[in-house]
Structure formats: structure tokens, C-alpha cells
């Protein structure tokens, strides 16, 4: 009998303590305590100016972007990718032909005819951005936002729109530069 009433008493007191906690929260609604009204408000991105060399600091996971003019077609990025979602094809240009240099003053020897990244397959592991010798593949936004701003929503109506094609070389150009119509295509 005593036990019975003790249980009732304990239930009421612990319930009151719990309600006190929730009531306390009601009284001090802090910032970040309530739901964000999404289209009007956005979750803040963490601050990025945090003391690294910004050109080499690649810490963000968003859409991949390639500065295709800087790419030398070395395939390092596609080899690093665990899910093989970077597809690169290139053609060798004839010796003596100049197809320009990269921002790091590396002479380009290969013409990248295909550079596709299937972002539907990408697992955002960031592994591809580290080995690039020219630092030309990176996640958009953050410290790279002066090169390429972040795509916050990063959504499309069609899944095929998430396959990004970066190569800007057309077949005419390839034929002209390599002097051959039959292309010997290398790469993955």
C-alpha cells in the first residue's frame, strides 16, 4: 500500500521536474533552438577564413568543379576515386604543337576530350582533390568561392543534369590539332 502511494508521488514529482525543463526552454528560446524557415533562412555555412593557405585549403563537400583549362589529363583524380565516377579521355597532340600552359606554367601535352563527373555516383569523399598536381579539381564554395561560388541548393529537376561535362574541346579542334581524323583516345 505504501509502495502504491510512493509510486504515484514519484510519478508526479518526476513528471513535474521534466515539465519544468521543457517550460524553462519555452521561456528562453535561444537562437538555434527553433526550426529554420528554410527558403527564407539558410543554415549558416561554417566560417572558412580559418588560417590556412586558402589556395590549398579544400575543406568543403559540395559540387566538384574542374578548371578544365588547367587540366593536364594526368588521370590522378580518376585513379583516386573509389567509385570511378570521373571519366576522362584524352588525345595526344603532335610534338611541336603548342596547346598552351596551365596556371602553374606546366606545358600541356594532352588534349582532354572528355571530362565527365557523375555527381549522382560521387560519395563526396574529397579524395580526388588531393592528388591533382595542378589544383584544378576542387569542391565549389568556401575558399574557392572567388573562383567558383557555392551551389547551395545543388538540385536539379532531372537526374541527368547531375552529370557534369567539363571538356570544352570540339571534334573539329581535335582533328585540326592532331592532324588525324581517326582519334586515338586514351584514358579511363
Amino acid at each position: 500500500m505504501k509502495r502504491y502511494f510512493y509510486n504515484i508521488w514519484e510519478t508526479i514529482t518526476t513528471l513535474m521536474i521534466g515539465l519544468g525543463v521543457t517550460f524553462g526552454h519555452l521561456l528562453r528560446i535561444r537562437k538555434g533552438n527553433v526550426t529554420l524557415q528554410y527558403p527564407e533562412e539558410r543554415w549558416p555555412q561554417p566560417q572558412r577564413e580559418i588560417g590556412f593557405n586558402l589556395d590549398r585549403y579544400n575543406v568543403i563537400r559540395s559540387r566538384l568543379h574542374v578548371d578544365i583549362d588547367d587540366c593536364i589529363g594526368c588521370l590522378q583524380c580518376s585513379r583516386a576515386c573509389p567509385v570511378d565516377c570521373i571519366k576522362i579521355e584524352f588525345v595526344k597532340v603532335d610534338k611541336g604543337l603548342d596547346i598552351g600552359t596551365t596556371s602553374n606554367d606546366t606545358k600541356k601535352r594532352l588534349l582532354v576530350t572528355r571530362f565527365d563527373i557523375d555527381m549522382t555516383e560521387c560519395c563526396f569523399c574529397n579524395l580526388c582533390t588531393y592528388p591533382c598536381p595542378e589544383d584544378c579539381i576542387y569542391m565549389t564554395g568556401g575558399p574557392n568561392s572567388r573562383k567558383h561560388p557555392i551551389d547551395y541548393e545543388y538540385s536539379t529537376y532531372d537526374r541527368s543534369d547531375l552529370i557534369f561535362r567539363f571538356s570544352n574541346v570540339d571534334p573539329d579542334q581535335v582533328a585540326r590539332l592532331t592532324g588525324q581524323n581517326e582519334l586515338k583516345v586514351g584514358g579511363k
Partner: peptide, 23 residues
């Protein structure tokens, strides 16, 4: 803030970390 990802980090590498902790 540290590694850019909220759930699947790929932060610890064999022999080290993918990058230092931020300031």
C-alpha cells in the same frame, strides 16, 4: 568546420589526417 562533412568524414587517413584542425 574541420573536415567539411557532417556525417561521413573520411578525415582520418592512414598515417595521419586529411588536414589539420582549423584555427
Amino acid at each position: 568546420l574541420t573536415c567539411g562533412a557532417r556525417l561521413l568524414y573520411n578525415y582520418m587517413w592512414v598515417g595521419g589526417l586529411s588536414h589539420d584542425i582549423p584555427v
